[in-house]
Design a protein around this nucleic acid. Structure first.
Lengths: 323, 323
DNA sequence: TCTATTTATACTCAAAATGAGCATAACTGT
DNA sequence: ACAGTTATGCTCATTTTGAGTATAAATAGA
């Protein structure tokens, strides 16, 4: 019932997301050498120094990144062989976390100013096929589906998984299936990490346009994070952990759209949010181009969160394909 | 950035649930000695023998339990100090899993026959306060809320968490907050495991009626499992992984009620299920006392799962308090 | 055999939520 | 003043939900 165990190291890796300007961004570290893939902030779990993993995680984040985390949530524990460099003596298990940070209050216009506060990358740079805000991403039909079909020719067992994940043959595109889609692309060797893990350097070229690669399985963790966030938005008010203390409804909607990767119907979104009772007006307004917008803030927790539900967001019609 | 790590062992523990007769049951093992708490099926993760943790888990389940698992899902990775016997040399991290098994086809009546196929315990024996099928559980008002209030007297910081988790002061009882409730009871030292972990043997007596205790943090894993299952039911068709191949709508509803811990409106449940398109009639009927019921089966996966949604179950009015 | 009881299934109806638009208000820049 | 832009208000048809009433098809017992 028991055997001599291989030494195990636990790695804590965190997908830290923020909303900045018009982008949903992820914090990266590393990649000192030119051609090396970047990585999520991470560090080993040291049980003799950190009472819980979350404490350990906050330690590493503080040390490497220095941002305030508004929401922290454990995602998944990955322990697959073959997803880690095999040179290591110990077996590495990685525990992935999702963390959200509030945007700092923007003084006036959503500046494109290159605030050099660390290495933040557009989340959709890693998953171009997940952003439907400008309509159905072209890469799906030019690269992904053909690539998957070619893969299915050799072994059609995954055909149904592909159908469900990518919404073919009458199946719906489900924006929550971020991980399932990434895993299929990995299995079909369409993303760079798969080729790296196979050690087949140079044998096949990674497809272009299939997103930036990350260190080890960090992109998988990021996919899990996005899927979880999209899912959670619908039943828990986590979106507010991406917002600054005061914000307009339009800003809230933009952030929601960034996360969900779809456009929403503005008037209905407003109705939804108002009805939820989460927000309270600050009386102030924010002016930019058109009519000034009312600035809201989250109602104090003392009395909020009656139903604690999220925003039952559903995709309106996508804006006419911006082409 | 790196330090000599304490040795870490990973423990895989699985909450295996089934629906049997009129109960939702959980499989237990161990407790060879009389006064010792039982435990979930478990075993160490051995990375040199099991490629993934799920493979390891299936290995231990096969060895200890011997049931077919219809659904397996990782729940959470717990690594808190103090939740494990501190006599151990290594630090133990436990990865909790939820697994569902299908009820074997019942030939005729839902027999109360004592089929001795292992140690299956009523899930609500561990969480009596979670079962609202006969109305609001009395233990809430006789034991739990008074106990929590006494605890809050010393330190009121958790007052709002209690309010939300237990649905007081206008807050709704949310059936998904199983873990939050258990954690609060643990923090308030109202469940036996808290006293064991504090090592304060005999100092305070564990409250009666607050459910059976389990080994180490296994009851916490079980709470996570129930919460996750309740949540998942609403957006993914997992309930069918508890059902035999053919079943009546009433049986499906009963199972759903067991999981959710509330009663549902029969006619509306039928409407919901029929509309979902998951089921297809077998043409057969099952007869018991009243009018015979149509027997359904899950539609073949090939064409099902269009929206892949769950059963947007919501509690109807509880049956008049069965007293 | 008749009848009460039990369970399954079919329909109805009002209230609430949703999806899609039109209309108007309140700004900016020229 | 006017065009352009964005926020906000309101309507309306449709769908979904919650809660009943009504009916069908069996069993068990007198």
């Amino acid at each position: 019932m028991s055997a001599a165990p291989t030494e195990i190291l636990i790695d804590l890796s965190t997908a830290i997301l923020r909303h900045h300007g018009e982008r949903l961004e992820c914090r990266l570290v590393g990649a000192a050498s030119a051609r090396q893939a970047k990585r999520l902030p991470f560090g080993p779990f040291m049980p003799d120094q950190h009472r819980t993993m979350e404490i350990g995680l906050r330690h590493w984040v503080r040390e490497q990144v220095g941002v305030d985390l508004a929401h922290v949530e454990q995602l998944y524990t990955f322990a697959d062989q073959g997803r880690h460099a095999s040179g290591e003596a110990a077996h590495i298990v990685s525990v992935g976390y999702l963390a959200l940070t509030r945007t700092r209050e923007q003084k006036s216009a959503p500046s494109q100013a290159p605030t050099e506060d660390g290495d933040w990358e557009d989340l959709y740079a890693f998953f171009p096929w997940e952003d439907w805000r400008q309509g159905r991403p072209e890469v799906l039909d030019t690269q992904i589906l053909p690539g998957l079909d070619k893969w299915l020719e050799k072994d059609a067992r995954a055909a149904d998984r592909v159908r469900l994940a990518f919404g073919r043959d009458g199946a719906q595109w489900d924006e929550e299936f971020v991980l399932e889609r990434y895993e299929l692309l990995y299995e079909a060797s369409l993303v760079e990490e798969a080729l790296v893990d196979q050690g087949s350097k140079g044998r096949r070229q990674p497809k272009p346009d299939l997103g930036l690669a990350l260190h080890l399985d960090h992109r998988r963790i990021l996919a899990t994070a996005l899927g979880r966030l999209r899912s959670k938005l619908k039943y828990r008010p986590v979106i507010f952990d991406l917002m600054p203390s005061g914000f307009t409804l339009r800003a809230l909607q933009s952030t929601t759209e960034m996360v969900m990767g779809v456009n929403l119907h503005q008037q209905n979104f407003r109705r939804l949010v108002e009805k939820s009772g989460f927000l309270i007006s600050t009386g102030k307004t924010q002016r930019a181009r058109g009519r000034p917008a009312e600035v809201f803030r989250l109602r104090h927790n003392e009395h909020t969160e009656r139903p604690l539900s999220g925003l039952r967001v559903s995709a309106g019609r996508a804006k006419p394909n911006a082409k």
